[in-house]
Design a protein around this nucleic acid. Structure first.
Lengths: 140, 140
DNA sequence: GTACATGCAAATTATTTGCAACAGG
DNA sequence: CCTGTTGCAAATAATTTGCATGTAC
């Protein structure tokens, strides 16, 4: 492996990710980064997202739409993907240990590194005015 | 909604998906389709995958890599994503009911439509010769 | 000073879409 | 027939990459 450097860009990116629970995508992070570093490039965002993921400092979420989303909060929790507005909400600590052991029991010869719980549906707001236009937008 | 037609292309695509547990991507399905229908186009594959998903006849998996994968087997089960070879294996029926209720308990005002369990790690074969070249290929 | 990182722009990959011709009901 | 569907090719969207320059250590 290479000797990673602690660049300003990487540091700020990680701080942003650790300070939000909105599970943003690369474009949102790009806009946010530019507030502090107007010259930053989208390529740098993507390169650092990959590095931080490989380091295990952030998590990538692929459950919703064509864009990847990222999570800088590593305490165990599941994710709810709203099919209406596309938002991703945390599911607080859904008894992680029993679940993982349950999965492990089914995967004898496997080397298990992580178990994820994803839920799909409509968030309280979208459940209310659950109209078809909205449904279209976030469909999986 | 529109009045869907039962085209030969759509019928074959669904049959292929229902007869495999390899969770193929669009390109694999395209090759397979061309064995029975050499003139079929990739656009048709994608259009029908979207229609079948909207009808609830197949499921889309986004956990692994940049390509979507599809599952034509709807009995409840989880998925294991090998970080080595990129294969997706089924996790036989991981006590679905307790889990879903557990998640539901955390999502009071939500309208829940589906809960998914995904596991990541290395399959028996990749665990053996867990070398770095292989690791590279399937990394998330 | 030596790599790793960056900014920029061009390239790649997966997926979607416009359109004229085709075909299911 | 009427309208959803197809094949084809061009368009889009997300992400990656090549390269000269910049910067962390």
């Amino acid at each position: 492996m290479v000797q990673l450097r602690n660049t300003k860009q990487r540091k700020i990116l990680l701080e942003i990710l650790q300070s939000t629970d909105t599970h943003p995508g690369a474009d949102w992070l790009y806009q946010k980064m530019r507030q502090e570093m107007p010259q930053v490039s989208l390529g740098t965002i993507y390169r650092n997202l990959n590095i931080l993921r490989e380091q295990g400092l952030i998590r990538e979420l692929n459950g919703c739409g064509s864009q990847s989303r990222f999570d800088g909060i590593l305490t165990p929790h599941g994710h709810f993907y709203c099919l209406g507005c596309g938002e991703v909400h945390d599911i607080p600590n859904t008894r992680p240990t029993p679940l993982e052991e349950d999965v492990k029991a089914n995967l004898d010869d496997y080397l298990l590194s992580e178990v994820e719980v994803s839920a799909y549906g409509y968030c309280p707001r979208c459940k209310e005015h659950a109209c078809l236009e909205i449904t279209k937008k976030g469909e999986k």
